[in-house]
Design a protein around this nucleic acid. Structure first.
Lengths: 235, 235
DNA sequence: CAGTGGTCTAGACCACCAT
DNA sequence: TGGTGGTCTAGACCACTGC
């Protein structure tokens, strides 16, 4: 047998769960019971159970046992990169303005800030072979020690701009992608005569307590947008 | 100290990686060395290292050691559900046709099938408050024992239709989302007078060897589309 | 109280890698 | 050949849950 024992235990229990042997929220045999069943020790059983838990098949409660979780088969993983999400890659970007402003309603809501807080607003246009394809707005509450050097800002991703305030690994990000009619501001940028459907990608960076610490809005022209994703199943 | 030792080891090494103590592809101290450093055993060290590996900070090669991986902070998780991706939920769907066809070029390419294989083509229209909002086309290579009962088809998701041929857990899915001009067929469905930009969501179901076993195309009207995603960081 | 999962020890043997 | 990660054993003590 080439297959490690913990792998066999993993497969066996996973297949039992999938085939519906256990009801949802019903409990698995205990670690010691499983160890006896597979003629091994708790450590090896735990190896399999830990993996099943991290993959979303199980959850455990100390002192009680392991319970079956309803695994969803509709979670997809995709990569989002401000530049790579476009069909062709961005080959130029132009900084339009860097200002310190007071929040309007949209900003106040998305950054959960009172009207008197100062916010750094950075606006850029992204180009693909000299054609405007996206409008980038980043909004970050102003704090001292923040770099507002234009040359730096142009190559800095949103999460990097706040990473000296908050360690990278503790940051959370949220994305919302949808289609909206272009605003007055966007119409000016893209030289639209009349409102037009555009992609809006809102990115919110949150700290460990889910408080927003940065917000950005990317407006893409249609026909320059593509996402590819794969189902997240194992690991 | 309340914090378990393996947690402390995990944090310590993670922070060292993030702070850039190790160069990319450079190797970590060996398990035994780390065990000595933290005055513990290999088992406890491995607990921390396994977690760091599954979170994408490290990878290991048997006989060589642990290596630093460049963790990307741009992977997002999102849920995709044919019905829930619309701003308002689908409240009606109408089956247009179920046919057995021979593949055209697009189908032959996406399902990697020769021109003489038979394919089941299922076409539906999805409604939100009596308005057509999406056109659903599913294509599955015909195999015996396949249910082609109209009442069943209407409530069956793509991956369920092939799940008696292939176990659910071994299936992989791939998504591609972009914007295209409506085809002749789509124009007829939505009563367009002229081509118009629409969302195209292509879903491919693959078996364990990445061979396609089903393919679907969902065409959504603009303004009825929304994705929300969260950054995948830990676990 | 006995049973559970959570943590940890101090060993062991193996296959693989570099020298 | 010695070092590495991969697998596994046979114990241990703890905090917690249910009775």
């Amino acid at each position: 047998m080439n297959e490690p024992l913990y792998e066999k235990i993993y497969r066996t229990i996973r297949d039992e769960i999938i085939s519906g042997k256990y009801r949802r929220d019903s409990t698995l045999p205990s670690e010691s019971a499983l160890a006896a069943i597979f003629s091994t020790t708790r450590v090896t059983v735990r190896n399999a159970l830990t993996r099943l838990s991290s993959e979303g098949y199980l959850y455990s409660i100390a002192g009680k046992g392991y319970f079956i979780k309803n695994k969803k088969f509709n979670k997809y993983l995709f990569e989002f990169d401000e530049k790579k999400i476009l069909n062709s890659n961005i080959d130029k970007s132009k900084l339009i303005s860097v200002e310190i402003i007071k929040p309007d309603v949209e900003l106040s809501y998305n950054l959960r800030l009172p009207g008197n807080r100062r916010i750094v607003a950075i606006k850029r246009i992204l180009y693909v072979s000299d054609k405007k394809v996206a409008y980038d707005e980043k909004y970050i509450p102003y704090f001292s020690g923040m770099p507002i050097i234009e040359s730096e800002i142009n190559v800095t991703a949103l999460h990097e701009m706040v990473s000296n305030k908050e360690p990278l690994y503790s940051m959370k990000k949220k994305l919302a992608i949808n289609v909206v009619k272009s605003s007055e501001e966007v119409m000016k940028i893209f030289d639209f005569n009349q409102p037009q459907s555009v992609f809006k990608v809102e990115q919110t960076i949150l700290d460990e307590d889910n408080e927003p610490i940065a917000w950005s809005k990317l407006t893409y022209l249609m026909d320059y947008f593509k996402i590819e994703a794969r189902l997240q199943l194992n690991k």
